[in-house]
Amino acid sequence: MEIDVKHIAKLAKLDIPEAELGKMEKELSSIVAMVEKLPELTSKESLLDPQNTMQLRPDEVKPSFPREEMLKNVPETAAGCLMVPKVVE
């Protein structure tokens, strides 16, 4: 079992220092090894559960939250917006 730790870290937006890659790979491998013991179960079916369904919500407006409140926890704001480092499209 080889795990491409660098690739996964890139997907997960985590910076795993070069020195820790090996350790992380070992740890993940030992957890994944537990999985290898699982019985082979396959199905072409989608993961639907018609026995256990949810109710939908009526389309009724409720007031939104005041903007000042919504932005209180935001690390950096400008002009009533959240701000992030410049994104080039």
Partner: peptide, 29 residues
Amino acid sequence: LNDLYLSTRSEGFGAEVKRRIMLGTHVLS
């Protein structure tokens, strides 16, 4: 933006949380 993402998540999360995120990302990839 990517620097913000990486530094936030790498410094903000502890080792066990990162381990599970990595595992979860792997099994869904």
